[in-house]
Design a protein around this nucleic acid. Structure first.
Ligand SMILES: [Zn+2]
Ligand SMILES: [Zn+2]
Length: 408
DNA sequence: TAGTGCGGGGGCA
DNA sequence: TGCCCCCGCACTA
């Protein structure tokens, strides 16, 4: 699957090649790239990576974040901007304790359609939590193919929870298709084949405190195992290197997958950005990043899935499992969200000092215009993917708004 | 049907 | 001039 990546000996030292003095806009980019970076699914902050042109993920310009193409009128440099995350306007909690963190559809029409559906749990309107992590504008990713390398550069810090990752969404869909085809042959498995009840499910830290998470997780996984529709992400390798992935869908792996799903949002930044609930938001940020920190301190190489998708769903190190290479940047792994926010000016300043301020960095107030859409409630749609588990989380205030600078 | 990439074009500073 | 966004189109899965 990721043969190309392995072929070029991805580095495992967590230190991206962003120390090199290059900018995505440079006329000449480094030619003699001996070691490519391992693919980073969840890039955040001002980062630069050099991937091998054989890296399948890099070839597809993948990101865990929902990034849409943005026309920068430059055919050589592909620019993508973050769409944010779709949340329930009421920040509801399902019976299972889940919360809603949907991955925004990339296609405009599909996104509008997605929001018309309403919250899959409570019928409340869905709200697109816009990304304003780059001077009030969405975080932007830049991709540039040069020779045998793919240069990546991101600008901005995401100020919203993580949506379901692209890789997971694909894995889930492929599994559901497989399951559907299998269940057609086996009527006993037909009951819930169309549904994806646990897609993108992610417990918040509050939902599964470490002390009790394992127990809850086991129980929950038993329930899942007893359920009839068990999408198994055959395409998702649970953080393993491709060679380690067993293609057979045994229950052990299924449980692991759901453990993954359940903990998915553990590192999510909660349902932050709600007016008046910054504390809760920050708390979530902190939990997630602390776990990331723990993980990053325990894991050394991305190809060694030491932690991250433990069998019991309550395990927190979601950050580790959120991506196949769970090597979030040092910044992301080592700082709380508030710390990141606090560090941003300096970081950006540092970045700008090093590489010069991008001329696009006009400090315009964020204008959501059509971006932040709420829609009327729609009938319950439990098969909607991506609702996040959260057993005990506190309800958040409903109102979300930004100030003129686009910050909460 | 949705994702992706490309490009035209208008608005803004 | 450069960046933002919207929109449409073509291609792909
Ligand atoms: Zn809801
Ligand atoms: Zn974002």
């Amino acid at each position: 699957m990721l043969k190309g990546v392995d072929e070029i000996a991805p580095r495992c030292d967590f230190t991206p090649l962003n120390g090199m003095s290059w900018d995505i806009n440079d006329l000449m980019l480094p030619q003699d790239v001996k070691q490519a970076d391992s693919f980073q699914e969840w890039t955040d902050s001002y980062e630069k990576y050099i991937y091998s042109s054989n890296d399948k993920h890099a070839q597809r310009h993948l990101s865990g974040w929902a990034m849409r193409n943005t026309n920068n009128h430059n055919a050589r440099i592909l620019k993508k901007s973050c769409l944010g995350v779709v949340v329930c306007s009421k920040d509801c909690t399902t019976m299972d304790g889940s919360k809603i963190h949907l991955r925004p559809a990339i296609c405009d029409k599909a996104r509008q359609k997605q929001q018309k559906k309403g919250c899959p749990n409570c019928h409340a309107p869905l709200t697109l939590l816009c990304c304003r992590g780059h001077g009030g504008y969405p975080v932007t990713n830049f991709w540039r193919h040069e020779g045998s390398s793919i240069f990546f550069q991101s600008k901005g810090l995401h100020d919203h929870p993580k949506p379901e990752s692209k890789l997971e969404a694909e894995a889930r869909k492929s599994v559901c298709r497989k399951r559907a085809s299998v269940s057609l042959k086996s009527p006993s498995l037909k009951t819930t084949q169309e549904s994806e009840p646990f897609a993108g499910i992610m417990p918040s830290q509050e939902a599964f405190p470490p002390a009790i998470s394992s127990h809850l997780g086991d129980n929950f996984q038993n329930e899942i195992a007893d359920s009839l529709c068990i999408p198994y992400p055959s395409g998702f390798n649970f953080g393993k290197t491709p060679s380690m992935v067993d293609s057979s869908a045994d229950m052990d792996d299924i449980g692991r997958y759901y453990g993954r799903c359940l903990q998915y949002a553990a590192g999510n930044y909660g349902c932050g950005n709600f007016t008046g609930s910054l504390k809760a938001c920050d708390s979530n940020y902190e939990y997630g990043d602390n776990w990331s920190r723990i993980i990053s301190s325990l894991n050394v190489c991305p190809s060694k899935p030491v932690l991250g998708y433990a069998h019991d769903s309550g395990n927190y190190p979601y950050e580790a499992a959120a991506s196949q290479n769970f090597l979030d940047t040092p910044l992301q792994n080592s700082y709380t969200m508030s710390e990141k926010r606090a560090a941003l000016p300096g970081l950006k300043q540092d970045f700008e000092q090093k590489w010069g301020e991008d001329s696009c960095e006009k400090k315009q107030p964020w204008n959501c215009k059509n971006s932040c859409i709420t829609t009327a409630g729609y009938p319950l749609c439990q098969e909607d993917p991506c609702f996040e588990m959260n057993n005990f989380s506190q309800p958040f205030p409903l109102v979300m708004k930004t100030n003129d600078q686009g910050f909460y």
